[in-house]
Design a binder for these strands. Structure first.
Lengths: 198, 198
DNA sequence: TTAATAATTGATTACACATTCATAAATAAT
DNA sequence: ATTATTTATGAATGTGTAATCAATTATTAA
């Protein structure tokens, strides 16, 4: 009973995520959201409570998509190592090509969400850890199959890969050249693959 | 002729840099600056023209200090490799200890300066390149003295180190654990030192 | 002393923006 | 049809803040 919502929640999240990804949390205005979605402020507030509330759901939506991407890599590659390489290569291609996906909502948020928005900041951390733990799982599998060096702690390796990815997200903001990015990736996987002596 | 300024420019820059480092460009208000410096808005505007103008000078001031740090490392270490290690270890200690210097004004700015502030963003890029080129010089020296692997392009190595540092600055925002940071550094210098087989 | 110049003061202005709310419109149960 | 319930509308509100400016104070040259 009652009037039907005139929008699909995921549509709004999708459009909002694109805007947040481009302008960040602070510099995205409700007006931007209304323009992109065709909704009025009141509708947005009744559906998401606040700008922070909307952002929280966008983060959830975004992270799900990233994890789906990682899962797809795991399915479509023969080895876990290949899956990881594909995942990182995809990200770096986006950065090199300066597509909208060059940026990461979570890394962006880590810098940009106001300090007083404690829950929001915490949530970002949580979501990055979710991604890290998926990478960890792939690394463990890769070690079990002797695809990568086994003497290293996979927890530390996962954090190393995350750190690399973070660095790339900074490069994305700086419009770094494609070869800088590729080169860095190659170097890091050398570490994993134990090929210091190439 | 005319009244004397009641402040030393560098004092203002120093105090402002601490605030910008903590709150970023966007969330630092002129009121914050007036509180920290004891100056009134009018004085700040007549001295620095605008918030962006002040920020620009702060960036210059900050970068000079970073480069002085790097130069000091070069002087106080026997080898260029040791100098680089010391420099990165210093930064990572700040991150691990969560000191104010855990954050980098330039990396922070890369994410956070509004896109329309084109000159400011460009300036940040420029300053990061200045730091990169100092690191490049040290890497070339290290190669000349066979301290690190010679088969690699020192330009790419410098960018690799910068990327690592960028990643660390993200970790700083996320309150990463000290051992995560140290571990990552060790791993990267393994690459430089060619010790895949430790 | 006086005039010319420069810096300081801080209230004021103008604007951007998150959020609200009274009113209107749609939907479903009775 | 009527009523109850939910959603949509968009103008209005309140707040925070970058920037301004007329009045004031200090400094120096003549």
């Amino acid at each position: 009973m009652g009037r039907q919502p005139a929008f699909k929640r995921n549509d709004v999240l999708d459009k909002a995520s694109k805007i947040f990804l481009h302008n960040g949390f602070q510099r995205t205005t409700i007006k931007d959201i209304t323009k992109a979605t065709g909704l009025q402020p009141g509708s947005i507030y009744s559906a998401f409570e606040s700008k922070s509330g909307l952002y929280t759901e966008v983060i959830e939506y975004y992270t799900k998509r990233q994890i789906n991407l990682l899962d797809a890599c795991a399915e479509n590659n023969d080895t876990s190592l290949a899956a990881l390489k594909t995942f990182f290569k995809m990200a770096s291609d986006n950065i090199a090509q300066q597509t909208p996906d060059a940026h990461c909502l979570l890394v962006y948020g880590a810098f940009e969400i106001p300090k007083k928005e404690k829950e929001l900041r915490y949530y970002v951390q949580l979501k990055l850890q979710e991604i890290e733990s998926r990478i960890y799982v792939l690394l463990v599998k890769a070690q079990e199959n002797d695809e990568i060096v086994c003497s290293e702690d996979p927890i530390q390796l996962a954090r190393f890969l995350m750190t690399l990815m973070f660095g790339h997200r900074v490069l994305a903001q700086l419009h770094a050249s494609p070869d800088t990015i590729d080169n860095t990736i190659d170097r890091v996987f050398q570490v994993l693959e134990f090929k210091g002596d190439k």
